[in-house]
Design a protein around this nucleic acid. Sequence first.
DNA 1: AAGCAGCACAACCGCATCAGC
DNA 2: TGCTGATGCGGTTGTGCTGCT
Length: 287
Amino acid sequence: MGRQPCCDKVGLKKGPWTAEEDKKLISFILTNGQCCWRAVPKLAGLLRCGKSCRLRWTNYLRPDLKRGLLSESEEKMVIELHANLGNRWSKIASHLPGRTDNEIKNHWNTHIKKKLRKMGIDPVTHKPLYPPPADQKKQQQQISSHTVEFADAEEDKGNKTATQSPISDANEEEKSITRAFNAIEADALLSKSPGFCTDEVPLIQLDEILVPRASASSSSSSNSCLLPEEIYFSSIEWTESLSLWGLDDFTSWDSICDDGDRKLAVDPFSQYQRVPHDQDSWKFELL
DNA sequence: AAGCAGCACAACCGCATCAGC
DNA sequence: TGCTGATGCGGTTGTGCTGCT
C-alpha cells in the first residue's frame, strides 16, 4: 500500500553489527524487554532501524539460542516438518527450541537440499527424483523413511478426501509433528553420532555471571532495576558468552504466551534480582 | 604466496498480515 | 469498513572464510 520501507531514512546504519551496537541492544532489551521495535533504536541509542534490531536480537543475540550446526536429529525433524509444512520456516523453527527460522532456512539451503538431492530425493516434494536402483532404495528409505512414509500417507489421505489440504488440516499437522518428535526420540537412542552436538557447549547459568559495577553511585539504586547506563559488561565477551548461556532452564524465555495470534515473550530475567557480589561487581540471584 | 571458487551465514528487502483507529 | 502503522515472514544478497590450484 505504498508504505515506506523502514530503512530508507538517511543516516541509518546498515551492514554487519559491531560489538558496541550489540552491547547497546542487549542492555536495552534486558532492561526494558522486547517492546515496540520501532522505538528500540532511538531509546537504545542505535543508528539502526527497528527491523534490523529485531532481526539482530531474534537471530543472533537472544540468550536462548543454540549455536552451531544442527544435530542429526534436528536435521531429520526439519526434513519431516518441511515435508508437511513447506517453506514455513518460522513454523518449523517453533518446533526446534533455540533455533531461528533464518538459521533453519540457511541450513536447509546449504546442507539439507544438497543431501536430499544426493540421495535422489526432491527437496521440494520430498519424493524420489527418479526410480531408485535397488541398492540405493534401501539407503534412501533409511534416511528419509519418515518423509517417504508421510508422502504415502498423504496419498492415502488424498484418496479418501480429495479436497482436503494437508497444510490446512491442523490435526494432521500435529500428528506429523508428533511423528517427528517420535523420530527424534528413536534417533536419540541411536545417535551416538560423533558429529558436533550443541549440547556439548558448556553451559553458564545466569547466576554465575558477574556484572561489573559501573560506578559507585549505582550501588544505591534498587537492586531489581537495571538502568542501561549501569550495565557495563566489559568483562564479558558478549557474543561468546551469550551463546554459552545455554539457558535451557529458561524455557520461560521462549515460553510464549499466546495472546490471540500474537505472541508475547516472557522475560526470564524477571525471575532474578541483582545483588552486590563484591565491591566491583553484581551478581544475579533467583528471586 | 596469490588468486580463485565455493561455502556458510548474517543481514537486507519487500510483501503479507495483523491490530488499532 | 477501510486506512495506516507495526511486525512477521520468506526470499535473496553480501561478505568473510576456507580450501584448492
